[in-house]
């Protein structure tokens, strides 16, 4: 048997957590950074994160902006490689690594840097929504 006893639908409670003042601000900031709609991001978070991670979202986001992705790698910084894998774990680290590597390869090629970053961001969005 793999199910838990006394299981209950937690979605409403998770939604309550996410809509308190500070958390709402954090969700909006993350959505802006990713270029997603707030509602979609909220849905993904409710599905993926457990409740204590949701409560901690705001401080993790804050710490991520201070400490994640130092200036040594501009591509990783623009994509938020560490930010979205270890601080706010929305993307699987291995997937993120491939996206990051391929984007880096593309910026080296003839195509312009902005376009490559935009493509990378689109792939991150895809990975989050999948």
């Amino acid at each position: 048997m793999t199910g838990y006893l006394y299981e209950k639908d937690l979605r409403q409670m998770k939604y309550n957590i996410l809509t308190s003042t500070k958390h709402d601000e954090a969700v909006r900031a993350i959505a802006r950074r990713l270029g997603m709609s707030n509602a979609k991001l909220r849905m993904v978070m409710i599905r993926r994160f457990d409740m204590s991670l949701l409560e901690n979202l705001e401080s993790r986001w804050q710490m991520g902006q201070q400490h994640a992705d130092d200036d040594s790698d501009p591509v990783a910084k623009d994509l938020g490689c560490e930010l979205f894998t270890r601080f706010v774990p929305l993307v699987d680290p291995r997937v993120m690594q491939t996206i990051c590597n391929e984007t880096r390869a593309m910026t080296g090629n003839e195509s312009s840097r902005d376009e490559a970053i935009a493509r990378g961001k689109a792939r991150i969005r895809e990975a989050i929504l999948s």
């Binding site: 003042t21 500070k22 457990d50 204590s52 991670l53 409560e55 901690n56 401080s59 993790r60």
Partner: peptide
């Protein structure tokens, strides 16, 4: 009018559990 409380346990429990 508006208030948000960030308590220490939020961070500690999360770090502890994960």
């Amino acid at each position: 009018v508006d208030i948000a409380i960030r308590t220490p346990s939020i961070m500690n429990i999360e770090a502890c559990a994960h």
